[in-house]
């Protein structure tokens, strides 16, 4: 099915962050459709649902109740059906350990949540417009963590 928009999914338990996220995309002049989920389980349920339309990019918060970001990442990477979905880690912390772990598990990019709304918009627009094919092939630990 040919789409003329980018389907974006976010799993984050924090309501404020979900709000910033959707607001940012609203303000961005990019043709996107954003779905948000309160935790990893909800996201996975959606992904596994046969009628769901698979997203282009999934943004994963790490610190979530029920099923956290790492567990969620593992589940997604297990299933070949989701191989074409780009996964962006979207977290408050940027501890070395988290960055390392998610990189090893196969995430495509790591975003530290900015403390400025304009920065957030800039980061999200950057991520959405990345040529994922190209980015993934040249992926390494140095450009994994998105710096602006």
């Amino acid at each position: 099915m040919q789409k003329d928009y980018i389907l974006i999914t976010l799993a984050d338990d924090d309501e404020d962050d979900r709000l910033f996220f959707t607001d940012a995309f609203d303000e961005l002049k990019i043709n996107t459709v954003v779905n948000t989920f309160k935790n990893g389980k909800e996201l996975l349920d959606f992904l596994h649902h046969p009628e769901s339309v698979l997203p282009n990019i999934i943004f994963l918060d790490l610190n979530m109740p029920i099923l956290n970001g790492i567990e969620c990442l593992k589940e997604i990477k297990k299933n070949q059906k989701f191989d074409n979905i780009a996964i962006a880690i979207y977290s408050t912390s940027s501890s070395d350990q988290d960055v390392e772990n998610t990189f090893v598990l196969g995430a495509n990019i790591y975003i530290k949540k900015p403390s400025d709304f304009n920065t957030l918009k800039k980061v999200l627009s950057e991520v959405v417009t990345i040529n994922w094919q190209y980015h993934t092939s040249g992926l390494n630990k140095d450009n994994f963590l998105l710096r602006l």
Partner: peptide
Amino acid sequence: ASHDLQEPLRKIQTFISRIND
């Protein structure tokens, strides 16, 4: 300190930036 304290602070700062804008 690294996560839980930073999170509310980050949100405060983001909201400030929202009001500023």
